[in-house]
Design a protein around this nucleic acid. Sequence first.
DNA 1: AGTGAAATACTCAGTTA
DNA 2: TAACTGAGTATTTCACT
Lengths: 152, 152
Amino acid sequence: MSGPGALEPLDQAIVRELSADGRRSFTDLAERVGLSVSAVHQRVRRLEQRGVIRGYTTRLDGEQIGLPLTALISLTPNDPAAPDDYPQRLEHITEIESCYSVAGDESYILLVRVASPLALEDLLRRIREAARVSTRTTVVLSTPFEGRTPPL
Amino acid sequence: MSGPGALEPLDQAIVRELSADGRRSFTDLAERVGLSVSAVHQRVRRLEQRGVIRGYTTRLDGEQIGLPLTALISLTPNDPAAPDDYPQRLEHITEIESCYSVAGDESYILLVRVASPLALEDLLRRIREAARVSTRTTVVLSTPFEGRTPPL
DNA sequence: AGTGAAATACTCAGTTA
DNA sequence: TAACTGAGTATTTCACT
């Protein structure tokens, strides 16, 4: 089992490069990590298969794509005895970018992006109805930085 | 000014595709959005230049890269009269993946990834020292989903 | 992990609507 | 202004060493 804890130095380097620029070419990667193109290619494919690399995304400017309002929403179950299927109940709500199950006063924290305060109000209503929860919302005023490369 | 609010349908489609898979080829994109390869190429370059597309990243499995512990940290300034240069003071701390300035009781919320509880303890000490803040930490137990494609 | 070669894809002219 | 065509490069991908 090549489980958690560590990544080989070469895989580490590859993952770091791809994290910094997900569209880096194999040729480019090969030069940076000091391997042949095909060796890098093989390692990337293996990292994808192992699930170390879960996929590739694009960092978008919320304002420019028409979703200028970001918020963090804490969820508290209305019925503490209800089965914990909240993620399933929330999955279909596309405004929810991320869903974290957390320790502490609340059960879940969601990160959402919407077009306007009105859209946020509607989203909150849908979340409460879908998951039978009460919500506490923290509006994001600005995002100094986001999605930086992890310390590998 | 091609400001916020909306994106042309074609750009929208391109951005949606790239958000779902940041390594999609121009050829692939062209087919999906119904344009020639060079037209897509040009639009993507323009989206990058306009800052709609901020860059490309890789979704990584925290466990497998040796950073199994995620936490959300709320920051409250020790000296409310101090100048607000917190992001600058925190920028060099690479464990901080995202930094949000928020409305509400706290000033900032950070998303961090570390290797262990001990590493979290050390990180909190460094954050408090660097930014002169007190912290409230919420540990993430699991992540049902994260970084999903926004509703374009 | 590396080599080499075939298949794809990228990129940039110049051209057209 | 935006998109297309085509041709030369570059990259990806795979069988083999």
